[in-house]
Amino acid sequence: MVFQILTLFPERYRYFLESGLPSRGLKKALLELRFRQLRHFADPRRPGRVDDLPYGGGPGMVLEVGPIHRALNSLPDTYPVVFFTPRGKRLNQQMVRSFASLPGLTLLSGYFEGVDERVAQNLVDYEVSLGDFVLGSGDSAAICFLESVSRLIPGFMGSDQSHVEESHEAEGTLEYPQYTRPPKYMDWEVPPILLSGDHGKIAKWRKEQSELKSRNM
């Protein structure tokens, strides 16, 4: 799957891409990432400047439409553009699954006081938010999105079944509790049913626990 990323800080993605599953995904050619540094597409009369004061006054600076438009036009492929913004639709697992079915996506991060509204009106296909809180930039949101979508690419996880019973794979449900060795630590014990070897009872217990956690979330 191809991710085309428009950003002011491509270095922020380095640790994510050089560690764990993303690193292996790149080596196995399951992921292809193409970065565009927005400052490279600034107006030649203002080298490196991609923001300006907001019309009508107010605090902060606004990311200009021109560098974003030029950066998009420089990309070799046209994929849906996902813009990370507080006003976007809140991301959920069903949306992640839908995005993961596509051959590629273009990710756009917001910065400063905001982004010129003409970007959302004319250049963006999806506006996405991680929740009702504010980040310093959209890069953190883009990295979370990238990880969430990537792990659903066939072959990306150690097993393609790894995500099947996870939280939110079925709408509104949380995964059952997990335990591992030792069976007793201090006076904290693993539920005996998980040690019973009775897979039917274990499956029933897990379903009940999942439903209980989901009701209480």
Rank of each mutant, 00 (worst) to 15 (best):
K204W: 08
L212I: 02
G114Y: 13
P44A: 04
S214W: 15
F35Y: 13
A142W: 10
T78H: 08
T106K: 05
K201G: 12
A71Q: 07
R39T: 08
T78W: 09
G172W: 11
I202K: 15
M61N: 14
R12N: 14
Y13S: 05
P80I: 01
L26K: 02
E117Y: 14
K184H: 11
N216Q: 15
V82P: 02
M1D: 03
L123D: 01
L195Q: 10
E169M: 10
Q121A: 12
Q121P: 04
P103V: 07
E208P: 00
L107R: 13
E64S: 00
Y176G: 01
G56N: 06
L8K: 10
R118E: 07
Q93T: 01
S150F: 04
P86C: 13
Y179C: 04
P182W: 13
A100P: 09
V50H: 12
T106L: 04
M95Q: 14
V50A: 09
T78C: 08
R24A: 12
P177Q: 07
T85A: 05
E166G: 11
L6C: 00
P103G: 09
F112K: 02
L135R: 07
L123M: 10
V62Y: 12
G138D: 04
A29K: 15
S101H: 10
E171N: 13
M1L: 02
E189V: 07
I153F: 08
G197F: 10
V62S: 04
Q178C: 07
V62T: 01
A29F: 10
K207C: 14
T85S: 13
P54L: 03
P59I: 01
S129F: 07
K201N: 13
S137A: 11
K201M: 14
Y13K: 07
M217G: 00
M157W: 06
E166I: 02
A203R: 15
G172L: 06
S167D: 09
D160W: 15
P80N: 05
R24D: 09
A120P: 02
Y176L: 01
D52V: 01
P67D: 02
K28Q: 15
I202C: 14
A142D: 12
S150Q: 00
T85W: 08
K27C: 03
P22R: 12
G197W: 13
L21Q: 15
E113A: 15
